[in-house]
């Protein structure tokens, strides 16, 4: 009974975000052109980033440490100003009434939860900041916690959860705003591999329901290949686009796919690209 209600809720959300014909024409997309970033008078951290994402794309960004991948993500999020270049969003008409702060969600390297607030209150935080009434934000937080399988923990405090559970709560908080764009900054980097694989699968499952566009920074090749349909390989000092690789694996992706020759071939391809970055640097 309860399951049904949540499924209906999720379906309504999905409908809200998908305007008719959205499957053929890219409605909301992100276009980055000539992006450059340097801090103060220092050397450039990022240079010549030109990138177009269609609505529904899942882009993984990978590169040696210090290549500016996190910086790129924070620029897209509006947390850091670019030194040059432009970022253009085209939002779908159906969501014109949504405050712009709620159109994109950011998932941080660690769970980044408020330690003094319960999990439910943490998940409801973005809605609270946007001025939603208490009843609605709590209902939506509860639905999201159900979705990430954290409903029993809703009244607990962050320190009472495991690292993986905290990360789920962090995902629920991002999803509670029903974003168009999900920005994820190495969200599972601190977790053990089993938990990470599990969360990767869950993340794709959630995306099947909510259909956001994603930019996912990671340092794991398998993670990038498993999640993304496009992988951007950055070189370092300054971070430039070394390669933009297509991952032609169909969605929905399953855990078993990690063992398929095609998957392993793609992992090898991305690894080779990363390797050539290293060769170029040395």
């Amino acid at each position: 009974m309860k399951e049904d209600r949540i499924d209906t809720l999720v379906r309504t959300m999905t409908e809200l975000q998908t305007t008719p014909g959205a499957t053929t024409a890219p409605v909301g997309y992100l276009e980055i052109s000539g992006l450059q970033k340097s801090f103060g008078e220092g050397p450039a951290v990022l240079a010549d980033i030109n990138l177009t994402l269609a609505r529904g794309d899942f882009l993984a960004v990978i590169g040696p440490s210090g290549c500016g991948k996190s910086t790129l993500l924070k620029i897209i999020a509006g947390l850091i100003k670019a030194s040059a270049g432009s970022i253009v969003f085209t939002h779908s008409g159906a969501r014109a009434d949504t405050p712009s702060a709620l159109r994109r969600a950011f998932v941080f390297q660690d769970a980044n939860l408020l330690p003094w607030a319960t999990i439910a209150d943490n998940v409801a935080l973005p809605l609270r900041l946007a001025g939603y009434a208490q009843a609605e934000r709590l209902a939506r937080a509860a639905a999201m916690l159900e979705l990430v399988k954290l409903a029993p923990a809703s009244q607990l405090y962050p320190r009472e959860l495991s690292g993986g559970m905290r990360m789920r709560a962090s995902l629920a908080r991002a999803l509670a705003t029903q974003p168009e764009l999900m920005l994820l900054d190495e969200p599972f980097g601190a977790l053990d591999e089993m938990t990470r694989d599990e969360l990767n699968e869950d993340l794709l499952e959630l995306r099947e329901r909510q259909r956001w566009t994603a930019v996912f920074v990671t340092h794991s090749v398998t993670e990038a290949v498993f999640l993304a349909n496009k992988v951007l390989v950055l070189s370092a000092n300054p971070g430039r686009m070394h390669a933009l690789l297509d991952i032609d694996l169909p969605y929905p992706r399953t855990a078993e796919m990690r063992l398929m020759p095609e998957f392993l071939r793609l992992v090898a391809m991305v690894t080779a690209s990363l390797h050539s970055v290293r060769v170029k640097l040395s």
Binding site: K74, A77, G78, L79, P99, S100, A101, L102, R104, A105, F106, F108, Q109, D110, N112, L114, L125, P126, R128, L129, A130, T177
Partner: peptide, 21 residues
């Protein structure tokens, strides 16, 4: 915590909200 300040900024928090929450 700098990351929490970033979080509030991503979600468009006002100065007042940042202070109280």
């Amino acid at each position: 915590d700098r990351n929490l300040v970033d979080l509030f900024q991503v979600y468009g928090a006002t100065k007042r909200q940042e202070l109280f929450y």
